[in-house]
Design a protein around this nucleic acid. Structure first.
Lengths: 132, 132
DNA sequence: TCGACTGATTATACACTGTCTAATAATAGA
DNA sequence: TCTATTATTAGACAGTGTATAATCAGTCGA
């Protein structure tokens, strides 16, 4: 992954230590962290960082298209560094969220929905992850 | 729709006035109300009803399979009287949620997901509802 | 160097969601 | 009627996310 500072610069966001801490965590995360998860991590690198700054930064990253935001879990929005189109699988037992590559599923019939102009869509699957 | 009292009796839930008010609203709703929406309505019929009772009743209805629960909107869970399998369309401008009949979309490729045991799934579409 | 301006950060307050608790009220059954 | 169970209630509580006002940091020009 490119380093946090260049990523921020590239999007015309001033790379402050607080924002770097947030970006470093959230953009390389394999899980789907909540804002609070991000705050916990960021405080390790930057103990004085406030909740407001984390929310501000996350919202900024989402606005700029660097970060996805998903409302598939109860209680809190989760963030997703994968900004390619993809689907999601939620493990009902652990709450873990996994990405499903876009081309592994095909959704047919959208074009027949006359009342709706579909801008984006995804499949949300729930169940158990098989032990490997 | 069957009347609220018989529905409750049928599920071995005592039909108190509070529960009747909740059931009458939520089980005939065409929108996808939040718990707070239900509370507002229920207070019209039953002004002393408390928030706890509304949550208790909604959770009970979900447990008993009379009501669906969806986490597709930010901020609050929404409830869905349609317990048949179906998909959802979210209007990005209004936040309104519409049901999409199950057989209007087809999802192919699930069986190839070797790491996951899919128990349920749905397609979530977002965009604009066309004016009719 | 100084001061002023801009932007970022901070602590805190706020509104809201959802759960829990302890006390009270209503109900059913003997 | 008395008792045991179940429901309801108000309020406390923990958590999420936004808004605000004050402070802080950095930049720019004189």
């Amino acid at each position: 992954m490119k380093d946090a500072i260049s990523i921020l610069r590239q999007c015309d966001i001033q790379p402050t230590p607080q924002r770097i801490a947030v970006v470093e965590y959230v953009l390389q995360s394999k899980s789907h962290p909540s804002a609070d998860d991000v705050l916990s991590y960021a405080r390790k690198k930057c103990p004085t960082i406030s909740r407001a700054t984390v929310y501000n930064t996350l919202n900024l990253l989402v606005e700029r298209g660097l970060l996805g935001m998903q409302t598939i879990r109860e209680g809190a929005v989760v963030f997703d560094p994968n900004i390619e189109r993809h689907h999601h699988f939620v493990d009902n037992e652990t709450g873990a969220i996994y990405d499903i590559p876009w081309d592994q599923l095909e959704v047919k019939g959208k074009e027949k929905l006359k009342d709706f102009e579909v801008v984006e869509f995804q499949v949300i699957l729930r169940g158990r992850r098989k032990k490997t």
